[in-house]
Structures are given as structure tokens and as C-alpha cells.
């Protein structure tokens, strides 16, 4: 594993005069679980949106597996192997859980406009398999909007996995979850990593989750990176403690 899979250099994003992301450097090593933490408004979600191309950086460059993806369109970046789930649940609400996953599989195979594959059936068993792996078998025929919050988050992971990404970007995967659901998600992310040799970049407020599964942690505050290093080291960092104590987190 030579060089980082994802490489951000001096990336900034302004909204008017407000600098949401300010000169961020970030290296995510292939095969690692990398957490981005920081108080509310630190710029984590904005950073993720820059990486996935939903937003364009005002400055800086982003490379994914050696290729410059700065300013590319979302779907083009996704096709290079960057899967994501959003902080606010983002699914196809009126499609069934199974169809949500099938839509992702169809897109990955780039056969959506292939009318020779008349039905999207051909993706059924793979989709069901993915639902199984995130523990959603029973809800396959349920519309996504009718699933419980925890199940919706699990479905998001299944949808993201269906694109067979090399890297998975999860923005607060356990947001709003019960302790039980959180535990299930943590277990899931750990299992995915070992099964798929997947790189995971995620943001999270729950410190137990962060230090439970991450290899490396980057700390942001007010748009800047204030600490970055192996999980163990960041945990003992005083500047980090200060940020968290200061912000009632």
C-alpha cells in the first residue's frame, strides 16, 4: 500500500465571507478506518461534500488513488470508487429497501440503459445478499421511508456497499441511533472493513465509537485541522481535550 488513497492538499471552501473549511490537508491510508471529529459546525460535513464533489472547493486539490478529482462531478467521482452515506439519511424513500440496493447495483454495472436486461431482476440475489449482510433481510419489500431509523442507516450502508467502492465515506453513521443500533453499526463497519479491505472515512460525535474502531483520527475545529494522528495519540492530545471540554460536547 503505497501512498494515501485519498489526499487533500490545502483545501478550502468559503460561503461568502465565511470560511467553512480552511486549508485542510488530509491523508487517508488505503485499508484504514479514519475518523474526522470536531465540534458542531467544525466543517466535517462540508469537507465530505467537497470530497464527493457535491461542493466545489474554493481552493486546493483533492486526489483519489493518485488521480486529481478536484471539481469533478459527483457521479464521476462515485464511479471511481467513492461510496458515501449522508449525515441526514438519504435514500429513495418510496422505493423498497431491495430496490434501493438494486438501483445502486444497476448503476455500478452501468447497465441502466441496457434494455436487453429487461428487468432489474438480475440484481435481486446480489441485493438480497447485501441486505442480509447489514441485517435487513426482513425489510426487503418495505419502502425505505417505512423502515426504522436504525434500519434506514443500515440500508444506507448497504446501498453504499452495492457500488463496490474502494472507499466508504460515512457522515455520522450513528447519528440519532439508540445505543443498541449504534453497537450494531459499529460491528457492521468493523466487519465490512475486514471482509472487503475497504477504506473507511467517517465523521462521528460518539467518542466511544471513534476510539473503538478508528486507526487514525483527524480533529477539526472552525474549519481547520487542529490535530491528526493515530487514534491513541489523538486521544491523549491536550489541545483536542480543550476543544471538546470547551464546547460542552
Amino acid at each position: 500500500m503505497s501512498g494515501p488513497l485519498l489526499e487533500l492538499r490545502d483545501v478550502s471552501r468559503r460561503f461568502g465571507a465565511f470560511v467553512a473549511v480552511d486549508g485542510v490537508d488530509l491523508d487517508v491510508a488505503a485499508g484504514s478506518i479514519h475518523a474526522v471529529i470536531g465540534p458542531n459546525g467544525a466543517g466535517k460535513s462540508t469537507l465530505f461534500r467537497l470530497i464527493t464533489g457535491i461542493l466545489r472547493p474554493s481552493e486546493g486539490s483533492i486526489r483519489f488513488s493518485g488521480e486529481d478529482i478536484t471539481g469533478r462531478r459527483t457521479h464521476a467521482i462515485a464511479r471511481r470508487g467513492l461510496g458515501q452515506s449522508f449525515q441526514i439519511t438519504s435514500l429513495f424513500p418510496r422505493l423498497t429497501a431491495l430496490e434501493n440496493v438494486q438501483a445502486a447495483i444497476v448503476t455500478r454495472r452501468r447497465r441502466a440503459s441496457d434494455f436487453a436486461t429487461w428487468f432489474h431482476w438480475s440484481t435481486g440475489s446480489e441485493a438480497l445478499d447485501l441486505l442480509n449482510r447489514v441485517g435487513l433481510t426482513g425489510g426487503a419489500a418495505t419502502p425505505a421511508q417505512a423502515l426504522s431509523h436504525g434500519d434506514q442507516r443500515a440500508l444506507e450502508v448497504a446501498v453504499a456497499l452495492a457500488t463496490r467502492p474502494r472507499m466508504l465515506l460515512l457522515d455520522e453513521p450513528t447519528a440519532g441511533m439508540s445505543p443498541f443500533e449504534t453497537e450494531r453499526m459499529v460491528e457492521l463497519v468493523g466487519r465490512i472493513r475486514s471482509e472487503e479491505e475497504l477504506t473507511v472515512l467517517f465523521s462521528e460525535h460518539d467518542m466511544d465509537v471513534v476510539f473503538g474502531i478508528s486507526d487514525r483520527v483527524t480533529v477539526m475545529a472552525e474549519g481547520r485541522v487542529i490535530a491528526d494522528g493515530p487514534a491513541q495519540q489523538v486521544r491523549d492530545d491536550e489541545a483536542v481535550m480543550a476543544v471538546y471540554l470547551g464546547s460542552d460536547e
Partner: peptide
């Protein structure tokens, strides 16, 4: 067809569909 499924997906959530690579 798969096209129909993806079309419905774009109706449901355009941003998500794009993030999938559509």
C-alpha cells in the same frame, strides 16, 4: 427495466442518485 428503476430513483432523490454514480 433497470433504466426504469434508476429513473424512479432519480425522482426520489436526485442527490443520492448522483452520489451512486448516476
Amino acid at each position: 427495466s433497470p433504466f426504469g428503476l434508476v429513473l424512479r430513483a432519480t425522482r426520489e432523490n436526485r442527490e443520492r442518485a448522483e452520489a451512486l454514480g448516476v
